[in-house]
Amino acid sequence: MISALQHPHLVKLYGCCIEGNQLMLIYEYLENNSLARALFGTNESQLTLDWPTRMKICIGIARGLAYLHEESRLKIVHRDIKATNVLLDKNLNPKISDFGLAKLDEEDNTHISTRVAGT
């Protein structure tokens, strides 16, 4: 279902492999790893992000979430947005990943929830 979603701010899922209790997801390669590593990683892995770049990343994440919640034909609530689940491509464009806690929303339901989920 997630591989059917196409948006510039969602990671592309190319495939998966299930063997026993092991699950492997194959995503597109994103050169700059995660936003968490760029911000909080070791000195060697941290990136210098100026304010316009930070704003571009935030707006990209918001656009990806708006697509999931309002624009796609499947209404999906991610429920685990955090810096480790945002990957950065070579141009520092953000891509939302890790849909492990995502929830498919019914047509009449809103995406607003007070239930705790995720980390």
Rank of each mutant, 00 (worst) to 15 (best):
C17P: 07
C17A: 14
I18V: 15
I18S: 13
E19L: 11
G20D: 08
G20K: 06
N21R: 14
L23G: 08
L23P: 04
M24D: 04
M24P: 00
M24N: 06
L25V: 09
I26R: 03
I26G: 04
Y27W: 05
Y27R: 03
Y29R: 08
L30N: 02
L30P: 00
E31M: 12
E31L: 12
E31P: 03
E31K: 14
N32H: 07
N32W: 03
N33I: 02
N33S: 12
N33C: 03
N33D: 13
N33G: 03
S34W: 01
S34R: 04
R37Q: 12
A38H: 04
A38R: 02
L39F: 07
F40K: 08
F40I: 05
G41N: 10
G41F: 08
G41V: 08
T42P: 09
T42G: 14
N43C: 10
N43E: 15
N43G: 14
E44L: 15
E44F: 12
S45E: 13
S45C: 03
Q46S: 07
Q46M: 14
Q46L: 10
T48P: 09
D50H: 12
P52M: 12
T53H: 08
T53S: 13
T53V: 15
T53A: 11
R54P: 12
R54L: 15
K56D: 14
K56P: 04
I57E: 08
I57R: 09
G60W: 11
I61K: 10
I61D: 06
A62Y: 01
A62V: 03
R63T: 09
R63K: 14
L65A: 04
Y67S: 06
L68W: 02
L68D: 02
H69K: 09
H69E: 02
H69T: 03
E70V: 06
E71F: 08
E71R: 09
S72P: 01
S72W: 00
S72M: 01
L74S: 14
K75W: 00
I76M: 01
V77W: 00
V77C: 10
D80N: 13
K82H: 10
K82N: 13
K82Q: 12
A83N: 12
T84H: 14
N85F: 05
N85K: 04
N85R: 06
V86G: 10
V86P: 10
V86F: 11
L87F: 08
L87D: 02
L88A: 07
K90D: 13
N91Q: 13
N91E: 15
L92D: 03
L92A: 03
L92N: 05
P94E: 04
P94K: 02
P94G: 05
P94M: 04
K95P: 01
S97I: 00
D98Q: 06
F99I: 06
